[in-house]
Nucleic acid binder design. Structure first.
Lengths: 118, 118
DNA sequence: TTCCGTAGTTCAGAAATTCGGAACTATTGA
DNA sequence: TCAATAGTTCCGAATTTCTGAACTACGGAA
């Protein structure tokens, strides 16, 4: 298992962010992470409406989000804890993440992940 | 030659916009259109740094931009005049287009299209 | 220490998408 | 009618995406 790669803030590229969030499943995962108070595991975000995302696909989604610079993942025992890099990102690309999440937010049917438990 | 399709404003989807602009070539084309005072033809935007974009690829880029709702294309004699739908889009997805163009703008090497003649 | 269960990663082949040259269509002007 | 220009469509090759199956990593129980 190779160590997880996280790009430095200055290496984050806009096209990678747009690519990562152009997939509604990934956008839903990211939106849930952005809405959660604390980090969340991969498997906690495996539902997208009716569909249960296969775990290899889910793993790949997290990899894309991580390597594009949108999230940080940290191993916590058996699980991975994932968190957004929203604050950093907003410094680098002002308004970008918020505008994207707002745009998706206008499509109630679009971000179909399970509502995070409070 | 089938007639050109342009989605209605309310049918424009955020994932389509992100997908279209996740490609640096398309983003460069769009940025130039956004910066131009008047509409521009396809062939006027065929350069991306060193590379000359093949015309079938260029045609496809314009199709993707058009069908995602980012531009309108109108035949003007032999040519096509292309313009952005920035104003409309900003109403629907506030701040989105500007944030994306600003993000790309931070990478001088990224948007390599030819500078439009004044 | 070994074994088991859970969480996530990696691999590999199938399916889908993208790329771009060549052929085609549309329009204008001679 | 013909030639030239601008852009589109077609289609095969190359690349990318998807996902089941096998694998790795870690923790807990005995």
């Amino acid at each position: 298992m190779r160590p997880l790669f996280h790009p430095a803030l200055e290496d984050i590229r806009p096209e990678a962010i747009l690519y990562a969030l152009a997939d509604p499943e990934r956008a839903a995962i990211f939106a849930q992470l952005a809405g959660a108070a604390c980090g969340r595991t991969c498997s906690a975000l495996a539902e997208f409406g009716e569909r249960v995302i296969p775990k290899s696909s889910l793993s790949n989604h997290f990899k894309v989000l991580r390597e594009s610079g949108l999230i940080v993942s940290e191993r916590q025992g058996v699980e991975m804890l994932n968190q957004t890099r929203c604050a950093e990102l907003d410094e680098r690309f002002p308004g970008l993440i918020k505008a994207i999440l707002t745009a998706y937010g206008q499509f109630p049917g679009q971000l179909k992940g399970r509502t995070p438990p409070q």
